[in-house]
Design a protein around this nucleic acid. Structure first.
Lengths: 169, 169
DNA sequence: GCTATATTGCTAAGCACTTAGCTATATTGA
DNA sequence: TCAATATAGCTAAGTGCTTAGCAATATAGC
């Protein structure tokens, strides 16, 4: 434990050590920090998106369509699988995006149940303009980490993510 | 990049490389994985809490009171500062907890504006019973990481968290 | 071929958060 | 001293998610 920082996570651990010395609460240091870091990152990214008049959820949909390549079309099902939310949430996001004329919904000729969601020129323009700003924000967040450290961080998180996926009830 | 895994994050990076080769989107690998890991962890922890008839938000309040030590009393203000939510959210959490008789709200004798939130015996009992299960779940999430790796992960995340905190608009 | 089941996309209702703004009390400073 | 400002706690309204459940279409099994 280098750099004896007395931050929030450290303080919580000390409290538990005093109150429940029978429990090994050391995992809280890592798990708690993942959660806290993610929330702070969300706030920073949201500020960037706000400068481009979108929220994170809307940008997520627009970016998913954008990176799928021409003709920038995906089904609500595919968008649901990409985002980590329910199909109902995607339907509501699409309602908002359609209302703002950033995407269109058309019937799928090959599947009578399906729809085809496509970026409008305005939607494409928005995501193209916001993307460099967004990427720059993410660069700033990681500016303090070397290339090697970023790789380490990714791999360590991947292990935890896999454990979380397998622990599913 | 060891272990050429073809997971969600990797696929997204490949798509961007094809669509926007002018942008260095490599930070997405790390930032995206922090977010995804945090959400999956939340789901796993929520399942544990559900077995004890609480949600994560309620447990967070109960645990904060518990680890503050006897007499298990804090002000709404202190609870707000500990949780990463607004004071309005804490007020509503306390409404729910008070309704379930897991905490009490009393006036603060030393500050006419303040309140004193205290664990009831039922609240203390609940958190004492849920805590070992919760800690065990967190251990399981980190089972794949050595002690050294956990330390590394914490430190790397702390750097990102600090960058996020300083990037506040 | 036709019935049973699965899939797709959606709306409705409920929930926990947010922002905005209120009241009551405490603190500051002219 | 006492007016101006700050702080504590709260409610109300709005937002974006969830679960539940719908109709329409596709697929599987007999």
């Amino acid at each position: 434990m280098l750099g004896g920082m007395e931050d929030q996570v450290t303080r919580i651990l000390k409290q538990w050590a005093a109150e429940r010395p029978d429990l090994d609460v050391s995992p809280m240091a890592v798990v708690g920090r993942i959660s806290r870091t993610a929330r702070k990152i969300d706030a920073v990214l949201a500020a960037t998106f706000a400068r481009h008049d979108v929220d994170s959820a809307s940008f997520d949909v627009l970016a998913t369509l954008r990176r799928s390549g021409k003709p920038f079309t995906l089904s609500p099902r595919e968008l649901t699988e990409s985002a980590m939310v329910t199909s109902a949430a995607i339907a509501q996001r699409l309602n908002r995006l359609e209302e703002r004329h950033l995407v269109t919904r058309a019937p799928d000729a090959k599947d009578g149940r399906g729809k085809q969601v496509t970026l409008t020129p305005a939607g494409l323009d928005l995501v193209n303009r916001a993307l460099p700003d967004h990427v720059e924000t993410e660069h700033a967040l990681l500016a303090g980490l070397s290339k090697e450290e970023r790789g380490q961080l990714s791999e360590l998180l991947a292990k935890v993510e896999q454990a979380a996926t397998e622990t599913r009830p």
